[in-house]
């Protein structure tokens, strides 16, 4: 198939970016979206240009590296998948495709379609864990966990930290990401002792990183490649409110 690409090019973090046009010619319809970019890049390199840079690694929808918006939608409009799982057979012959980086104040562009998402790591570092020293764990089956709780925690734990939720939100809020981590760990009995401390730390770090507020539009849920439900946001709000009260009482 033959397509026209409108791609965001930006040579470095401080450079100004612009949209450039490329012709993607003779793309096999079985190719993946990133393989299509590989083919276009081969052409660019052969003509002496600088290839289009984008983050990617596993190319099977699990590492969370790939981070670009296709026609304005993070990971494309197809639901429940990442960019690397998009296949060309979903496009029409002759189509024009807009390709841009995930955009958010907290995700500065590094080059072309690559962005810096280290804010997510710092949020996890602030409180997204259960503090258990290696070697100090009790026998694994000593804490039974009902299937319902286990399943709910699991659904939240499927987050791959890609940042599509932030990129889709008009406020660039990270509430789905943070809510998912809080839900994963707060639902499990192992996570109960640090529940309040965790939510307060996660939310404070999120604010410090410059993510916006959630105004309940749930664009995040719509683009999440793992289809994490916005219910984790309401749960985060409840857990946070309770933690704030307990913190105030304790002081």
């Amino acid at each position: 198939m033959n397509l026209t690409l409108k791609v965001w090019r930006q040579s470095g973090p401080n450079a100004t970016g612009r949209i450039e046009t490329y012709e993607a010619k003779e793309i096999p319809s079985e190719a993946s979206f990133l393989e299509m970019l590989d083919i276009v890049n081969t052409g660019i390199i052969k003509e002496g240009g600088d290839p289009i840079h984008f983050d990617h690694d596993c190319r099977e929808g699990i590492c969370g590296s790939c981070s670009l918006a296709i026609n304005g939608v993070p990971h494309s409009k197809e639901s429940g998948i990442t960019t690397c799982q998009v296949h060309m057979r979903k496009f029409r012959e002759g189509e024009t495709i807009w390709i841009e980086p995930f955009r958010a104040r907290a995700f500065p562009v590094i080059k072309d379609l690559m962005v810096d998402r280290s804010a997510f790591d710092r949020i996890i570092a602030a409180g997204g864990y259960i503090d258990v020293r290696t070697g100090s764990a009790p026998e694994a089956n000593s804490i039974p966990i009902g299937k319902e709780d286990a399943d709910e925690a699991f659904d939240a734990a499927t987050c791959i930290g890609c940042g599509a939720c932030v990129a889709a939100c008009k406020n660039a809020s990270a509430m789905l990401f943070v809510g998912a981590k809080a839900a994963h760990l707060n639902i499990l009995p192992q996570g109960h002792p640090e529940k309040d401390k965790r939510v307060l730390a996660l939310v404070r770090q999120m604010d410090a990183e410059g993510f916006g507020n959630c105004t309940n539009h749930y664009e995040c849920e719509a683009v999440c490649p793992k289809e994490i439900s916005a219910d984790v946001i309401s749960k985060l709000n409840r857990d946070y409110a309770a933690a704030i009260v307990r913190e105030a009482v304790a002081e």
Binding site: I130, A137, A150, A153, H184, L185, L188, Q190, G191
Partner: peptide
């Protein structure tokens, strides 16, 4: 044991 304690579901 270690993984379960960390919250691995």
């Amino acid at each position: 044991d270690q993984c379960v304690a960390q919250g691995v579901p």
